[in-house]
Computed example of a mutant assay.
Amino acid sequence: MHVRLILTLALLLPLVPIATTWPVTPRPPVLRGWEPPPTPYARGHRGVDLRAAPGTPVRAVAPGRVAYAGLVAGRGVISVELRDTGHPPLRTTYEPVIPTVRKGDEVAPGQQLGTLSPTGSHCATPCLHWGLRRAREYLNPLTLLPPHLLRRGTSRLLPVRP
């Protein structure tokens, strides 16, 4: 009972923006957003699709440890368990990627994990599918990004008026 209560509370905790970069740069267009399914086994989109060209470097958005780097259903997948994100920890996923890291590697924000694969994408155009989970609960990975990384365009300073 005690473990179940802790797990339930961890799933209900709000996410704090901890990412310091997008997984692909420059800031990519979001081709398809996060669409949570109404039930665990229903249709939905359990991540976001970011437009990127094949061969684009895919980077860790926050510090963590590589939990998996290999093939799943013929697609290259990398999963990173994020450091200091509670118990159970948050885990980001990236696909389709040709990994340059291995299970157990410690990664820093912005560190290259691999490159976007030219095949295996479920998008009509090349894209990176970026996901986020806590245990079995899928979450919106965009909630990891602070507001300044979500805004489009450049900031500009305005003159100070007396």
Rank of each mutant, 00 (worst) to 15 (best):
M1S: 11
H2Q: 13
H2C: 08
R4M: 10
L7R: 06
L7G: 03
L9Y: 02
T20Y: 00
T20G: 14
V24F: 00
V24R: 02
R27Y: 02
P28H: 12
G33A: 03
G33D: 05
P37A: 15
T39D: 10
P40V: 13
P40I: 13
R43D: 14
H45I: 12
H45E: 12
V61F: 00
V61R: 00
P63F: 00
P63I: 03
V66D: 06
A67G: 10
Y68G: 00
A69I: 02
A69T: 01
G70Q: 00
G74I: 09
R75Y: 15
I78D: 08
E81H: 00
D84I: 03
P88W: 12
L90N: 09
R91D: 15
T92Q: 05
T93H: 07
Y94C: 11
E95T: 11
P96Y: 11
V101A: 08
R102Y: 07
V107D: 13
Q111E: 13
Q112H: 12
Q112G: 09
H122N: 09
C123D: 09
A124E: 14
P126F: 13
P126E: 10
G131N: 06
R133N: 05
R136C: 05
E137V: 09
E137Y: 01
Y138P: 06
L139I: 07
N140F: 07
P141Y: 14
L145R: 00
P146Y: 06
R152Y: 14
R156G: 04
R156H: 12
L158V: 12
